[in-house]
């Protein structure tokens, strides 16, 4: 790979000759590391505040004075062990809904993306353009009609009702169609010549080559649904066994209180599982997507 981008930004001297590598790296770090701190400031702030004792969450102090109990685990204890707060049930439901939604979304988007990318059928382009247009419709407007449908189908308080309405993800369709369009036709033809069935071609050629994009879509859908509040709130009655974590955590926002420390402890539970998931999974998709985009 030839070098182009390594010398594109902030790495050239006035004469246009590349700087020494060490200087370049130092300069990059000088820009990137403060930026990184800024980007992660909310996360840090959240974690620190979640450990603070009542009243300290709204003080710009971090080092406790002698004899002062500035930090505590109390905020977390309340979320975990309150007998009236079935934390694990909420978390499990969130996990089921987010996973279910992500699996279905990826499955149907990959199939449809393949068809829109590689199959020729009457009405294809018109249909695709129509679907893309739907992306521009403000999302909240779907809520009321979708709720009526779910009522009609009798899906209140069911996982099905929580999952299915959000699986036709047009952004995901677009992502996969763009990716699959980039796959060489010769591969598919070769498979056909080898006598592979349509289904076989799909599973043996298209799916393996689309894994990074599929994982990306899986994770994006997963996090979207993990934090989906409004829909999961209205599609479940409060006595439903399927309440999810965001709905449960909203119970913490008492009537008038603004206890930052407890709110941040609650927020940790909506953010940290995602952070862990991504740290584990990132190599499957960030590296998959950007593989080779390293120039030296």
């Amino acid at each position: 790979m030839a070098n182009f981008a390594n010398s594109t930004l902030a790495t050239t001297r006035a004469y246009g000759r590349p700087m020494p590598k060490a200087w370049r790296y130092a300069l990059s770090y000088a820009v990137l590391l403060p930026l990184l701190l800024l980007v992660h400031l909310p996360l840090l702030w959240m974690i620190i505040t979640a450990f603070k004792a009542p009243g300290y969450g709204t003080k710009l102090e971090f080092i406790p004075r002698a004899g002062e109990a500035m930090y505590t685990l109390e905020n977390f204890r309340q979320v975990f062990f309150d007998k009236d707060f079935p934390f694990y049930r909420f978390a499990w439901n969130s996990l089921v809904v987010a996973t279910g939604c992500a699996v279905v979304t990826v499955a149907i988007c990959t199939m449809a993306g393949y068809a829109f990318a590689k199959k020729r059928f009457p009405g294809r382009d018109l249909l695709f353009a129509g679907l893309i247009t739907i992306m521009l419709v403000p999302g909240i407007i779907f809520m009321v009609p979708q709720y009526r449908l779910v009522l009609k189908f009798g899906w209140i308080n069911t996982y099905l009702g929580m999952i299915l309405p959000h699986t036709a993800n047009i952004f995901g369709l677009f992502l996969l169609r763009q990716h699959i369009r980039g796959l060489p036709d010769s591969l598919l033809e070769a498979a056909r010549v080898d006598g592979a069935s349509e289904i076989g071609t799909f599973f043996r050629i298209v799916v393996p080559l689309s894994v990074p994009v599929m994982i990306t879509l899986f994770l994006l859908t997963f996090v979207g649904q993990w934090s989906n509040f409004l829909w999961q709130l209205i599609v479940n009655t409060p006595d439903s066994p399927h309440l999810t974590l965001p709905v449960g955590l909203s119970l913490f926002q008492g009537q008038y209180q603004t206890e930052w420390e407890k709110m941040m402890a609650g927020a940790c539970f909506s953010i940290l599982p995602i952070a862990v998931l991504f740290t584990v999974a990132q190599r499957f998709f960030i590296q998959g997507l950007t593989a080779g985009s390293v120039k030296e």
Partner: peptide, 25 residues
């Protein structure tokens, strides 16, 4: 463009910059 180079730790940096995107708005 910054992270398209073999800057030491570029993989970790990419992930780190990406991470906030997935948090609940």
């Amino acid at each position: 463009l910054f992270l398209n180079t073999r800057l030491p730790g570029y993989r970790a940096l990419r992930s780190a910059f990406f991470l906030p995107h997935v948090f609940d708005v």
